[in-house]
Design a binder for these strands. Structure first.
Lengths: 333, 333
DNA sequence: ACGTGTCGCTAACACGTTATAGTGAGTGGG
DNA sequence: CCCACTCACTATAACGTGTTAGCGACACGT
């Protein structure tokens, strides 16, 4: 009665129920065009339950040529609060579509991309960074149906990019433009986040142009009070003077706030600052930080939808509503 | 020449090289007890290269009964900066041992645990939270060799727990004890992190007892300045008065700092605060936050080592050095 | 000349699953 | 009585890999 090896297979269930492996498969998968007597159906189900049968994903994947796993590839730069939340939302959204979302954290010196998807055989790959062309073609050749590059502004439909990083910068700029004549952009001191930071700064630039404001003054702001104070000094000395700062994220924004304090200045009186992500620290910073919050559940739904559709062979249904961006207004701007 | 379906198999390589599939397997896996002519070896290698052959992980897993994937299970509470970093370090550490580390974010309402490991067939599972017994036995029955519960203080060897959360609290307490007579613990306002917060608070308690200090005053501190101000008031009104605060993490610590500011008080003069994680915001808070930083690479190495050893059937070599805890001392304490 | 090895390779099976073709029993119609 | 047909199920062929047994060819010692 006890199975030979550790693993309980469908053959074990079949033996226990006194039927063939095929019947077990029909029952457990509810195969439509197959009639199964209620009696045997119950025998199979109880047998499976009793033995604790768990179908082998590897065998299934081999048979189908595709697993139900969606592989998320994280970039190698430090992950903030929003990234963690987005991963959670994606996990939920994919789970609701019968897909298992797992994440591999890209890290310098770790395995190459090809080794990773070879080891997982995912149905789709979702990346925060663009792939190399050779990687992309290799993956398609290996039968991975969908490859979506998150935040890839070079792709087709650049303007109507699903998660338009542009919109974030634009929202920051529009809020500040109500009471400020010249804006600055606080750029992160990490080359690796350029994929994100570039489009966001561009969004600020475009919004300034639309609103008739002068070109924003972009400065790199490291995460120390001293360095941030230097940037603040330069902004205040600029001509025309910069009094409103769009920061890449809350961390950079809080660094700008620290630079202000270092100089004995105060937000928003001397300079207004607005961040992105609404991280927990933003609510308790000095002063409390105004921040842009993305519709992460909406974004997750969007990606999950498009991946699901692509896997089902359906055309990319782009009739989905664009996820909205919200402003959490506090004291800093 | 072009393979029938999208996927390039070892049979395609064999055909291209004019040998059998077995020979291809021998060459590509460097099978030791098999002699292969240098000429055919080269023919096979070039053929594989030319066709872009990628072995199917599913077939391999099916054959071996085990994949080279280590599945990390994240809890469903919000992930901070340190969690992201630990994931990156784990990814690197496992990659160095020929294991692919992927993470599944646990989230309320998503798929059940069993569905996840069934879909992945991992060699090992690494969890931040303890499993239920039924899950654990089911996984072992399915051939998953190793199950390590991270931060599980109930397991065997509780005192010498690999990543002793106790030590973090103790380090906080010892630092504050130099200049404070009564300590408080700032507990997070989220029941889900109790697995972490409990042991850390216990560490503070034990250290206080060892140092001859009175029992620490544990208070829940939500992430708003008002609520934190209430907690600060209570601490200052306590008897004996509480003047040193160990916070669960940097976010809670910064909330305490905000509470102090709200009351017109100042750290460390009126109350010293110390956090955990050394998140980027800690360096630019007001005042800059003293924080405990864990040896995340060391922790990752430790877990990767123990998983590797267990997979190789070796006994758990516990001669590894304990990862050290470091204090980043700034102005807040 | 003939057994005995060794060399270099191939044929074939097993892993666990799903889907297709097929099979024996029963039933109804002519 | 026999053909046709449904019913409920089974046998079997893949999916792509790693591995064991085996096989022809050749060398060698006697």
């Amino acid at each position: 009665m006890a199975p030979r090896s550790g693993r309980v297979t469908s053959a074990d269930v079949a033996r226990e129920a006194g039927v063939s492996r095929a019947t077990v498969s029909f029952v457990l998968n509810n195969t439509q065009h197959q009639k199964i007597t209620e009696a045997t159906r119950r025998r199979v189900l109880t047998a499976a339950e009793k033995l604790g049968y768990a179908p082998s994903a590897a065998a299934r994947t081999l048979r189908y040529g595709r697993s139900d796993v969606v592989l998320g590839l994280l970039p190698d730069w430090p992950l903030g609060y929003a990234a963690g939340q987005l991963v959670q939302e994606l996990t939920l959204a994919f789970a609701n579509r019968n897909l298992t979302f797992v994440v591999h954290s890209g890290i310098r010196g770790a395995r190459s991309l090809s080794e990773i998807w070879k080891a997982i055989t995912p149905a789709a790959v979702l990346s925060f960074e663009p792939f190399s062309d050779s990687d992309a073609t290799a993956m398609r050749a290996a039968g991975i149906e969908v490859i979506v590059a998150l935040y890839d502004d070079k792709g087709p439909g650049s303007d109507e990019n699903i998660t338009s990083a542009n919109a974030i910068g634009a929202a920051q700029a529009r809020h500040l433009a109500a009471s400020h004549r010249r804006l600055g952009y606080a750029y992160p001191d990490d080359e690796r986040v350029a994929v994100f930071a570039g489009p966001r700064a561009d969004g600020v630039r475009k919004a300034c142009a639309e609103l008739g404001l002068p070109e924003p003054d972009v400065r790199t702001v490291p995460l120390t009070a001293d360095a941030a104070a230097d940037a603040v000094r330069s902004w205040l000395a600029a001509d025309p003077q910069v009094t409103g700062i769009c920061a890449f994220n809350d961390d950079v924004a809080m660094s700008v706030l620290a630079g202000l304090r270092r100089l004995g200045l105060e937000a928003p009186r001397d300079m207004a600052v607005i961040g992105v992500d609404d991280s927990p620290a933003a609510a308790v910073s000095s002063p409390p930080l105004t921040s842009v919050v993305q519709d992460l559940p909406g974004i997750a739904e969007l990606y999950a939808n498009s991946v699901r559709a692509a896997l089902d062979g359906a055309p990319a249904t782009s009739n989905q509503v664009e996820p909205r961006i919200r402003l959490e207004v506090r004291e800093s701007a």
